[in-house]
Protein backbone atom coordinates (compact mmCIF):
# COMPACT_ATOMS: atom_id res chain seq x y z
CA UNK A 1 0.00 0.00 0.00
CA UNK A 2 1.46 3.32 -1.10
CA UNK A 3 -0.31 6.67 -0.95
CA UNK A 4 0.52 9.16 -3.67
CA UNK A 5 0.44 12.72 -2.36
CA UNK A 6 -0.02 15.37 -5.03
CA UNK A 7 2.30 18.36 -4.85
CA UNK A 8 1.27 21.52 -6.66
CA UNK A 9 3.12 24.82 -6.52
CA UNK A 10 1.52 26.27 -3.39
CA UNK A 11 0.51 23.02 -1.70
CA UNK A 12 1.35 23.30 1.99
CA UNK A 13 -0.17 20.24 3.65
CA UNK A 14 1.61 17.65 1.51
CA UNK A 15 4.18 17.00 4.23
CA UNK A 16 1.49 16.85 6.90
CA UNK A 17 -0.18 14.05 4.93
CA UNK A 18 3.14 12.28 4.57
CA UNK A 19 3.74 12.53 8.32
CA UNK A 20 0.24 11.32 9.19
CA UNK A 21 0.46 8.36 6.80
CA UNK A 22 4.07 7.32 7.38
CA UNK A 23 4.90 8.66 10.81
CA UNK A 24 1.61 7.86 12.51
CA UNK A 25 0.25 4.89 10.57
CA UNK A 26 3.23 3.35 8.83
CA UNK A 27 1.74 3.70 5.35
CA UNK A 28 4.40 4.55 2.74
CA UNK A 29 3.84 7.63 0.61
CA UNK A 30 5.24 9.04 -2.59
CA UNK A 31 5.06 12.69 -3.62
CA UNK A 32 3.51 13.20 -7.05
CA UNK A 33 4.72 16.41 -8.70
CA UNK A 34 1.94 18.17 -10.61
CA UNK A 35 3.71 17.77 -13.94
CA UNK A 36 4.24 14.03 -13.69
CA UNK A 37 1.87 11.36 -14.98
CA UNK A 38 3.26 8.19 -13.47
CA UNK A 39 0.92 6.65 -10.91
CA UNK A 40 2.57 3.22 -11.08
CA UNK A 41 2.63 1.56 -7.67
CA UNK A 42 0.25 4.12 -6.18
CA UNK A 43 -2.79 2.58 -4.48
CA UNK A 44 -4.50 5.79 -3.38
CA UNK A 45 -4.11 9.49 -4.15
CA UNK A 46 -4.41 12.39 -1.72
CA UNK A 47 -4.84 15.95 -2.98
CA UNK A 48 -3.58 17.95 0.00
CA UNK A 49 -4.47 21.34 1.39
CA UNK A 50 -2.78 24.58 0.48
CA UNK A 51 -3.08 27.12 -2.29
CA UNK A 52 -2.45 25.25 -5.54
CA UNK A 53 -1.14 27.64 -8.21
CA UNK A 54 -1.66 30.45 -5.72
CA UNK A 55 -5.43 29.88 -5.86
CA UNK A 56 -5.36 32.30 -8.80
CA UNK A 57 -8.64 32.81 -10.64
CA UNK A 58 -10.53 30.55 -8.17
CA UNK A 59 -9.42 28.02 -5.58
CA UNK A 60 -8.44 24.84 -7.38
CA UNK A 61 -9.31 26.20 -10.82
CA UNK A 62 -5.84 26.02 -12.36
CA UNK A 63 -4.80 22.75 -10.76
CA UNK A 64 -7.54 21.12 -12.80
CA UNK A 65 -5.38 21.45 -15.90
CA UNK A 66 -2.26 19.80 -14.51
CA UNK A 67 -1.00 16.63 -16.24
CA UNK A 68 -1.07 14.77 -12.93
CA UNK A 69 -4.77 15.37 -12.48
CA UNK A 70 -5.58 13.97 -15.91
CA UNK A 71 -4.13 10.71 -14.62
CA UNK A 72 -5.91 11.07 -11.28
CA UNK A 73 -9.26 11.44 -13.06
CA UNK A 74 -8.58 8.20 -14.95
CA UNK A 75 -7.42 6.56 -11.70
CA UNK A 76 -10.67 7.58 -9.99
CA UNK A 77 -12.69 6.30 -12.95
CA UNK A 78 -11.04 2.89 -12.48
CA UNK A 79 -12.24 2.94 -8.86
CA UNK A 80 -8.96 4.13 -7.34
CA UNK A 81 -9.36 5.82 -3.95
CA UNK A 82 -8.94 9.60 -4.12
CA UNK A 83 -9.06 11.91 -1.11
CA UNK A 84 -9.23 15.70 -1.47
CA UNK A 85 -8.52 17.67 1.70
CA UNK A 86 -9.39 21.39 1.88
CA UNK A 87 -7.76 22.80 -1.28
CA UNK A 88 -7.93 19.22 -2.56
CA UNK A 89 -11.72 19.27 -2.10
CA UNK A 90 -11.83 22.54 -4.04
CA UNK A 91 -9.82 20.88 -6.81
CA UNK A 92 -12.20 17.88 -6.89
CA UNK A 93 -15.19 20.17 -7.43
CA UNK A 94 -13.38 22.13 -10.15
CA UNK A 95 -12.50 18.82 -11.80
CA UNK A 96 -16.13 17.75 -11.71
CA UNK A 97 -15.38 14.62 -9.67
CA UNK A 98 -17.67 16.07 -7.01
CA UNK A 99 -20.55 18.52 -7.61
CA UNK A 100 -20.78 22.10 -6.33
CA UNK A 101 -18.14 24.67 -5.44
CA UNK A 102 -16.37 26.08 -2.39
CA UNK A 103 -16.77 29.82 -1.91
CA UNK A 104 -15.74 32.49 0.59
CA UNK A 105 -16.73 31.91 4.19
CA UNK A 106 -19.91 33.69 5.16
CA UNK A 107 -18.21 36.17 7.47
CA UNK A 108 -14.98 36.38 5.47
CA UNK A 109 -12.85 35.14 8.36
CA UNK A 110 -10.15 32.59 7.79
CA UNK A 111 -11.28 29.86 10.20
CA UNK A 112 -8.65 27.86 12.03
CA UNK A 113 -10.30 25.86 14.79
CA UNK A 114 -11.64 22.42 15.69
CA UNK A 115 -14.95 21.50 14.07
CA UNK A 116 -17.39 18.90 15.30
CA UNK A 117 -18.70 16.75 12.49
CA UNK A 118 -21.35 14.12 12.03
CA UNK A 119 -20.19 11.22 9.89
CA UNK A 120 -22.50 9.40 7.48
CA UNK A 121 -20.12 6.86 5.98
CA UNK A 122 -22.61 5.35 3.53
CA UNK A 123 -20.61 3.45 0.95
CA UNK A 124 -17.55 5.74 1.17
CA UNK A 125 -14.51 3.53 1.39
CA UNK A 126 -12.52 6.19 3.22
CA UNK A 127 -15.05 6.24 6.08
CA UNK A 128 -15.52 2.55 6.76
CA UNK A 129 -13.91 2.94 10.17
CA UNK A 130 -16.58 5.33 11.46
CA UNK A 131 -20.05 4.58 12.77
CA UNK A 132 -23.16 6.00 11.09
CA UNK A 133 -24.06 9.23 12.86
CA UNK A 134 -20.83 9.26 14.87
CA UNK A 135 -19.58 12.66 16.03
CA UNK A 136 -15.90 13.40 15.51
CA UNK A 137 -13.70 16.47 15.80
CA UNK A 138 -11.26 17.54 13.07
CA UNK A 139 -9.46 20.85 12.59
CA UNK A 140 -10.60 23.22 9.87
CA UNK A 141 -8.33 25.86 8.34
CA UNK A 142 -9.83 27.71 5.40
CA UNK A 143 -11.02 31.05 4.07
CA UNK A 144 -13.07 29.59 1.24
CA UNK A 145 -14.94 26.59 2.55
CA UNK A 146 -18.57 27.61 2.13
CA UNK A 147 -20.03 24.77 0.10
CA UNK A 148 -22.40 25.98 -2.58
CA UNK A 149 -24.66 23.93 -4.81
CA UNK A 150 -28.16 24.34 -6.22
CA UNK A 151 -31.09 23.07 -4.14
CA UNK A 152 -31.96 20.24 -6.53
CA UNK A 153 -28.43 18.83 -6.46
CA UNK A 154 -28.21 19.20 -2.68
CA UNK A 155 -31.47 17.30 -2.29
CA UNK A 156 -30.17 14.54 -4.55
CA UNK A 157 -26.88 14.33 -2.62
CA UNK A 158 -28.82 13.98 0.62
CA UNK A 159 -31.19 11.38 -0.82
CA UNK A 160 -28.26 9.34 -2.11
CA UNK A 161 -26.44 9.55 1.21
CA UNK A 162 -23.42 11.30 -0.28
CA UNK A 163 -23.14 14.07 2.32
CA UNK A 164 -20.53 12.10 4.21
CA UNK A 165 -19.58 14.80 6.72
CA UNK A 166 -21.68 17.61 8.17
CA UNK A 167 -20.81 20.43 10.54
CA UNK A 168 -22.69 20.20 13.82
CA UNK A 169 -22.30 23.99 14.14
CA UNK A 170 -21.97 25.43 10.68
CA UNK A 171 -18.87 27.67 10.78
CA UNK A 172 -18.83 29.07 7.26
CA UNK A 173 -22.34 29.15 5.78
CA UNK A 174 -22.11 25.95 3.75
CA UNK A 175 -25.47 24.90 2.33
CA UNK A 176 -26.80 21.80 4.06
CA UNK A 177 -23.97 22.09 6.64
CA UNK A 178 -21.85 20.17 4.11
CA UNK A 179 -18.27 19.58 5.28
CA UNK A 180 -17.48 16.62 3.04
CA UNK A 181 -18.90 14.71 0.08
CA UNK A 182 -18.48 11.25 -1.32
CA UNK A 183 -19.03 10.25 -4.93
CA UNK A 184 -21.70 7.62 -5.71
CA UNK A 185 -19.14 4.83 -6.07
CA UNK A 186 -17.58 5.71 -2.71
CA UNK A 187 -13.96 5.90 -3.85
CA UNK A 188 -13.71 9.70 -3.97
CA UNK A 189 -14.04 11.80 -0.82
CA UNK A 190 -13.62 15.57 -0.58
CA UNK A 191 -13.68 17.38 2.74
CA UNK A 192 -12.74 20.79 4.10
CA UNK A 193 -11.54 19.56 7.55
CA UNK A 194 -8.01 18.20 7.90
CA UNK A 195 -7.93 14.55 9.01
CA UNK A 196 -4.13 14.49 8.61
CA UNK A 197 -3.87 17.03 11.45
CA UNK A 198 -5.72 14.69 13.80
CA UNK A 199 -3.49 11.62 13.67
CA UNK A 200 -0.78 12.39 16.21
CA UNK A 201 -1.55 12.53 19.96
CA UNK A 202 1.09 15.24 20.32
CA UNK A 203 -1.03 17.73 18.38
CA UNK A 204 -4.29 16.63 19.96
CA UNK A 205 -7.11 14.56 18.56
CA UNK A 206 -6.90 11.25 16.78
CA UNK A 207 -10.21 11.28 14.92
CA UNK A 208 -8.48 11.50 11.55
CA UNK A 209 -6.52 8.29 11.93
CA UNK A 210 -9.30 5.92 10.95
CA UNK A 211 -9.80 7.82 7.70
CA UNK A 212 -6.28 7.17 6.42
CA UNK A 213 -6.16 3.76 8.14
CA UNK A 214 -9.19 2.69 6.06
CA UNK A 215 -6.72 2.09 3.24
CA UNK A 216 -5.15 -0.71 5.25
CA UNK A 217 -8.46 -2.44 5.97
Amino acid sequence: MTIGVAVFPGSNCDRDVKWAAEGCLGIPTRFLWHEERDLAGVDAVVLPGGFSYGDYLRCGALARFSPLLEEVVAFAARGGPVLGICNGFQVLTELGLLPGALTRNRHLHFLCEPAELTVQPGTCRWLGGYGAGETISLPIAHGEGRYQVDDVTLHRLEQEGLVALRYRRNPNGSVGDVAGLSNPTGNVLGLMPHPERACDPLTGGLDGRRLLASLLG
Binding site: T103, R104, N105, R106, H107, L108, R146, Q148, D150, G173
Partner: peptide, 10 residues
Protein backbone atom coordinates in the same frame (compact mmCIF):
# COMPACT_ATOMS: atom_id res chain seq x y z
CA UNK B 1 -27.62 36.20 -7.89
CA UNK B 2 -28.39 33.27 -5.57
CA UNK B 3 -24.79 33.07 -4.30
CA UNK B 4 -23.87 35.03 -1.18
CA UNK B 5 -21.12 37.63 -1.73
CA UNK B 6 -19.51 38.27 1.67
CA UNK B 7 -16.78 40.47 0.14
CA UNK B 8 -19.45 42.63 -1.49
CA UNK B 9 -21.34 42.91 1.78
CA UNK B 10 -18.20 43.89 3.66
Amino acid sequence: PSVLDPAGEA
